[in-house]
Design a protein around this nucleic acid. Structure first.
Lengths: 192, 192
DNA sequence: GTCTATAACGTGATAGAC
DNA sequence: GTCTATCACGTTATAGAC
């Protein structure tokens, strides 16, 4: 009934949850195993070293982004729709668990992560930047929203703003994320 | 020759450095003591528990902000000057050590911090928000810069953007922070 | 694939000499 | 105010039985 990879997926899910709520150094194999009702050796079977787990997590995030954006990147489409989907995803994720952005979490421990994890994390971030830059460029061209200056730095400010807002929201209140999202909308001339 | 509190200050300095480069859970008493050439018991003498160290650090940040902004908050002044000072401080701090914002660092471990540290951290953040909100309001009134909408959410976006940019910069390159700063300037209509 | 058992180590923290 | 010595604990990780 249960698939062979079931435990592996459960480990990934729990690890993702913990990463976004405590940072990569803030959880242990025990936190994962006890939650699943298994022993820590079982987790080590699927991910021998913690770095393997980190790599799998980043890879998963990257693949998710690719799946959600590949069509847009290849053939274009409605930029506003892409943008709204991204904002809603972020907002929903944050409202259920007050979790922070995985990139933000990894950035803290970045200097101590293995080279391969660092490279994959950087790749993931650069792909995200590239995607949003194109969304902004296409959306402005299609007059779905407006802003002045290059799309690149604008994309950076939006991504950085969301990442920071999620962290600030957990110290203060989720209202902060909502306010920042509204401000981003306003600065893009999007009517809500 | 050396003051009584000399070691205490050195501990604070090193701890601040470590906090901003590895997060609160990313460094140990040993990291501090070995750097100063003392034993970890000496550090425990000045800060019995790690929470005491966290509290002292947040308090120091808060006091620094108060010192730098109290005059403006009380009597007003040039908002542009305040803003530039803040940006330069952030930029300089980031360019020497690629360190992240202390608030960002604490936000990761926030759920496990003692209540008193949490409260002080939240106070510090709220004071920062309040200060920047007033700077934006006054600056727009004095026509030093311009933007549409309420100063509050605008202040949040700027602070969140800086916090996120510092983290992204460490994964990619310091150029990201520079780009974000330029975009913020542009969105405020400040000519550079 | 999961278990028990254990190794090897780093951590925050304390007691008591100097 | 700093030291030596030590504790109790959590951590990642491995070996080998089932």
């Amino acid at each position: 009934m249960t698939r062979i990879t079931d435990t592996r997926e459960q480990i990934m899910d729990r690890a993702a949850q913990l990463l976004m709520s405590r940072g990569f150094n803030g959880f242990s194999y025990r936190d994962i195993s006890s939650h699943l009702g298994v022993k820590n050796a079982a987790v080590h079977y699927h991910f021998p070293a913690k770095a393997d787990l980190a790599l799998a997590l980043v890879d998963e995030y990257r693949q998710t982004l690719r799946d959600k954006t590949s069509e847009f990147m290849a053939y274009g489409g409605s930029a506003l729709e892409q943008l709204k989907g991204f904002f809603e995803f972020t907002s929903r994720q944050c409202h259920t668990g007050r979790c922070i952005c995985p990139l933000g979490a990894f950035s803290i421990d970045y200097s101590e992560l293995p080279e391969e994890v660092r490279r994959t994390t950087a790749d993931f971030m650069n792909e995200t930047i590239k995607w949003l830059t194109q969304v902004l460029a296409v959306g402005r061209e299609q007059e779905e929203f407006s802003f002045s200056g290059d799309p690149g730095p604008k994309a950076l400010l939006i991504l950085a703003g969301l990442q920071g807002a999620r962290q600030m929201a957990r110290i203060n209140s989720l209202e902060i994320l909502d306010d920042v999202l509204k401000q981003i909308h306003q600065d893009l001339g999007i009517v809500t």
